[in-house]
């Protein structure tokens, strides 16, 4: 038996162990090669599929690279003004308490312009899930400084490196949110290895289960990469993230009540 025929024998329906969930649409993603958004979208779609909640889930997309998230996950979506996703989700969840409502926001959207909305939605303990993607840079607008940009990090608006004396310090928004009594589950995850993706998926599952049990707000930060903004290859970006982001933004669950 030749190698090719052996492979062809393996490639058959009954041996399938991993494929794209049907909740993820076939539209080609506009993200750059290696972008963490793609992995997070996939994880969310898989959880929605496995929990059987496609017809009960409403996503709120932000302004930023993931503004077009509604082109990829096959659910009803609302597209929010910059930073306002938690306000949309608040009303949606209160007016339809039986639904699963989540926001999907980047670091500029959530931690900068939308700081008030996220803090207050968390403080009210809205029964929603928040996915917060932190790659320490503005992607869509071309690599400017984000609130989470690390000290010394070069961006389009900190071309000589972020000087904390001038621009303040990288914001640990997840730690702030964990302090608010309205939040139930606050965790920081990543998605660069198979193990990390599995952990992220478990966290997402738990978050949506919290919604089902009306437990209040679940907040998942995902430390991710932006190879275009960082001007590194996708593989090098993961290395840079582990070396520089993880020490400042340590992975793990901050709160689980």
């Amino acid at each position: 038996m030749t190698a090719t025929t052996e492979i062809n024998k393996i490639i058959s329906k009954e041996n399938l162990v991993y494929n794209k969930t049907s909740v993820l649409l076939d539209n080609e993603m506009h993200y750059c090669p290696g972008c963490t958004h793609g992995v997070i979208h996939k994880v969310i779609a898989e959880v929605i599929d496995e929990m059987g909640i496609q017809d009960k889930t409403i996503g709120v997309s932000p302004v930023g690279c993931s503004v077009l998230a509604y082109n990829y996950i096959d659910i009803d979506w609302q597209q929010a003004a910059h930073g306002r996703a938690p306000a949309l989700a608040t009303a949606t969840s209160r007016l339809m308490p039986e639904k699963y409502v989540f926001t999907y926001q980047g670091d500029g959207d959530l931690a900068s312009i939308g700081c008030a909305e996220i803090i207050h939605a968390c403080n009210r303990g809205e029964n929603i899930v928040v996915f917060f993607v932190n790659n320490a840079i503005y992607g869509m607008t071309g690599g400017q400084m984000a609130p989470t940009t690390l000290e010394g990090q070069v961006t389009a608006t900190t071309p000589y490196g972020r000087d904390c004396k001038v621009t303040g310090f990288p914001m640990k928004i997840t730690e702030m949110i964990a302090m608010l009594p309205g939040t139930r589950f606050v965790t920081r995850q990543s998605a660069e290895t198979p193990g990390a993706v599995r952990k992220l998926k478990k966290a997402a599952q738990k978050a949506f289960e919290n919604t089902r049990e009306n437990k209040g707000l679940s907040f998942i930060e995902i430390v991710g990469t932006c190879s275009s903004g960082w001007k590194l290859s996708p593989v090098k970006s993961n290395e840079w993230m582990k070396e520089n982001m993880f020490p400042y933004y340590p992975l793990g669950t901050l709160k689980d009540e």
Binding site: R84, A87, A91
Partner: peptide, 25 residues
């Protein structure tokens, strides 16, 4: 539902969310 929002900005965006659900808000 009656909710005091954290700002006028949040309030109008809650209206956007509610209106998106086909509700009278």
């Amino acid at each position: 539902v009656v909710l005091q929002a954290e700002s006028e900005v949040a309030a109008i965006n809650m209206v956007y969310g509610g209106a998106s659900c086909g509700k009278k808000v």
